[in-house]
């Protein structure tokens, strides 16, 4: 049966001879060979230098799973996660304050962001840590009263320093995310009888997340690395632990390498987590998401089981 409207059949008549394929000599990119050679030479020189360095690789291995180091890594993750949560919650509050119609809240939010983005986090950490010098007693009226030195432990100084600083950055990220959502979405939800709060929670924020998540992931990875500054307020995180052991054992660079590898490991793990989180909030935005590495592996296993792959193996 031939569809009279179907012209595709006539487009390539079967009798047409196969065209002769072009066999041209490709352009030689000599510049690429030169560049590759230069880079490889430099790499070789670098590898040679490292190999001949006075480094005791064995100590790197010995100390990698040292209890002290592991505790430092745990502390790094704990303070980073808590500071990020603090930054996220406070950041959303600041973003909403910044976008409100109330001039007081708008100005206060602006001032907060101005201060915390305008000063180095290193200075902020020192300020929190030394708060007891100007406020010896923490007095919250009838609720709480204590010596400041008891409250402002290294952990608290680290958490406040990182978290409050992070909130300023998160506020701007959240604001950008919320403002990126098309106004038609709010109109549609209002027209359906949803209140402002419902609109924000059900319609705007889930869509804003797509814009908020990627920079937030970057922020978190930045925060993990910035947390090494907490060594200055005596917080026992990865770097400080590594430096302690390094100074005592004399293996200074070896322990710095241990810290380096741990930071790389942690940031890699969280980057993978971020990849999956971004996919989740990309729902509905592209017609078909590319498969994750894990899905690819599973699909390959599945097709092998179905026999497509076994033919190859049997051949």
């Amino acid at each position: 049966m031939k569809d009279p409207l179907d012209k595709t059949a006539d487009a390539t008549p079967p009798s047409a001879p196969a065209p002769e394929l072009i066999k041209a000599i490709p352009v030689r990119h000599y510049g690429r060979y030169v560049a590759a050679a230069v880079v490889l030479t430099l790499l070789a020189l670098f590898a040679n230098a490292v190999a001949n360095a006075d480094l005791r690789w064995a100590s790197v291995g010995d100390f990698f799973f040292d209890d002290q180091i592991l505790e430092g890594v745990k502390n790094t993750i704990v303070v980073s996660v808590l500071a990020m949560l603090m930054g996220l919650v406070l950041g959303i509050v600041l973003a909403v304050m910044r976008m409100s119609k109330n001039p007081v809240t708008t100005t206060v939010a602006w001032g907060y962001i101005w201060f915390f983005r305008g000063t180095p986090v290193y200075v902020q950490l020192l300020l929190w840590f030394n708060l007891a010098l100007i406020f010896p007693i923490l007095n919250l009226g009838p609720i709480y009263k204590d010596e400041m030195t008891d409250v402002m432990t290294p952990f608290m100084a680290a958490l406040l320093g990182l978290g409050l600083n992070e909130a300023a950055y998160m506020a701007e990220i959240c604001r950008a995310g919320i403002q990126s959502v098309d106004e038609g979405q709010t109109e549609a939800s209002h027209a359906l009888g949803m209140t402002n709060a419902q609109n924000m929670r059900r319609i705007v924020l889930p869509q804003a997340m797509r814009v908020i998540v990627p920079p937030t992931g970057n922020e978190f990875i930045n925060l993990l690395k910035t947390s090494s500054l907490c060594a200055v307020v005596m917080y026992e995180e990865t770097l400080r632990k590594a430096q302690n052991i390094g100074n005592n054992s004399g293996a200074v660079v070896e322990l710095l390498l241990v810290a380096t590898l741990w930071y790389l490991l942690i940031t890699t793990v969280f980057s993978i987590g971020q990849y999956y989180l971004e996919r989740r909030y990309a729902r509905g935005t592209s017609r078909q998401l590319p498969p994750t590495p894990w899905q690819r592996i599973r699909r390959n296993l599945f097709t092998v089981g179905r026999g497509t792959g076994s033919e190859v193996r049997g051949a």
């Binding site: 109109e187 549609a188 027209a191 359906l192 009888g193 889930p206 909030y281 729902r283 509905g284």
Partner: peptide, 21 residues
């Protein structure tokens, strides 16, 4: 919001919620 419940509206640009089926 309560007044709008009983009034349906269809927009030129659809304005469907893209994160929902």
């Amino acid at each position: 919001a309560a007044q709008r419940r009983d009034i349906g509206m269809v927009f030129q640009r659809f304005n469907l919620f893209p994160h929902m089926t």
